[in-house]
């Protein structure tokens, strides 16, 4: 299975958790250790090695805050 790398833009993220709810690998969560400039806990990845580059998180993000790359 493909391996992926995602980048979440803290600048745009509003902590809505839609990405968290759809990730098939359950490797996303909100970072409760910080609050971004928008006033929310931004999303973060907790296990970078398990991402399969499916882009489900990016498709659900209303802020277009997620970039997905495939590691070939």
């Amino acid at each position: 299975m493909a391996r992926g790398k995602i980048t979440i833009s803290e600048y745009y993220c509003k902590g809505c958790e839609l990405c968290v709810s759809v990730c098939p690998k359950k490797i996303l969560k909100l970072d409760e250790s910080k609050i971004n400039a928008n006033g929310y806990n931004p999303a973060m990845i907790i296990d970078e090695y398990s991402c399969i580059a499916c882009a489900s998180c990016a498709r659900m993000c209303p802020e277009a805050a997620i970039t997905v790359e495939r590691i070939d």
């Binding site: 929310y40 209303p62 802020e63 997905v68 495939r70 070939d72």
Partner: peptide
Amino acid sequence: MSVVFQKTKGLTDNKTHYCPG
């Protein structure tokens, strides 16, 4: 590395005023 998904050029760089989610 190849890009699978990135923000479209059809959107501006503005943050939206919409509620979260």
